[in-house]
Amino acid sequence: MAEHRIFGMSFAGIYPLYVTKVERKGRSKEELDQVIGWLTGYDAVGLEKAIATEVDLRTFFAEAPAMNPNVSLIKGVVCGVRVEEIEDPLMQQIRWMDKLVDELARGKKLSSILRSA
C-alpha cells in the first residue's frame, strides 16, 4: 500500500496555515507554539529549525524531543475520523496536532487543550 502523501508534506508548509487559522480566531502564534511544544517537546528554537530546514512531517515527528505522555487524553474527531482510533502511529500524531490546533482556534482554554488538571 502506498504511503499517505501527507507524511511527505513539509512542516514549514503546514505551520503558516496553522498560524493563519488560530490568528483569524483571535489566538496567537505563541499559543500555537505552546500547544505544538506540549505535544512534541519542541521549544521555539526547535520549531524554527524544523521550519527553516523544511523537514517533512515524518521527520518532524521522528525527531520530536519528547511526545507528551498525556497524548492518550486527546480524543475527538478530525476530518471525520476519531483520533483515538487511528491505527497508523504517524497519522495519529499528525491528527493529534490537527485536533489541538482546532481546539485552539475554537477558543478552548489552554489548560483544557494542554490536558491540565
Results as ranks from 00 to 15, higher is better:
Val101Ile: 14
Arg27Ala: 06
Gly37Arg: 12
Asn70Lys: 11
Glu63Ile: 01
Ala44Lys: 11
Lys49Glu: 14
Tyr18Pro: 02
Val81Ala: 10
Gly8Pro: 01
Arg27Leu: 05
Glu87Ser: 09
Phe61Pro: 00
Ile14Pro: 02
Lys21Met: 09
Ala2Met: 08
Ile74Met: 02
Ala62Phe: 00
Leu32Ala: 10
Leu32Gly: 06
Glu103His: 07
Ala52Ser: 15
Ile6Asp: 02
Lys108Trp: 10
Ser111Asn: 15
Val19Asp: 03
Arg27Gln: 11
Phe7Trp: 02
Ala62Gln: 02
Lys75Glu: 13
Asn68Gly: 07
Ser111Phe: 15
Val19Phe: 05
Glu84Asp: 15
Ile51Asp: 02
Gln92Val: 03
Val78Phe: 09
Leu73Tyr: 14
Gly41His: 04
Gly107Phe: 05
Ile6Arg: 03
Ala2Trp: 08
Ser116Arg: 14
Thr53Ile: 12
Ala117Ile: 10
Leu114Ala: 07
Leu90Gln: 00
Ala12Ile: 08
Met91Asp: 03
Ile74Pro: 02
Gly41Asn: 09
Lys108Tyr: 13
Trp96Glu: 06
Leu17Met: 12
Arg106Val: 03
Ile113Met: 10
Ser111Asp: 15
Val83Leu: 08
Pro65Met: 12
Leu47Trp: 02
Leu110Cys: 14
Trp38Gln: 07
Leu100Lys: 05
Ser111Val: 15
Arg82Gln: 12
Leu110Arg: 11
Val55Tyr: 01
Pro65Trp: 08
Ile86Phe: 02
Arg24Asn: 12
Pro16Ile: 09
Ser111Met: 15
Pro89Gln: 07
Thr59Phe: 01
Ala50Cys: 14
Arg115Phe: 07
Pro89Arg: 04
Tyr42Asp: 05
Val71Leu: 13
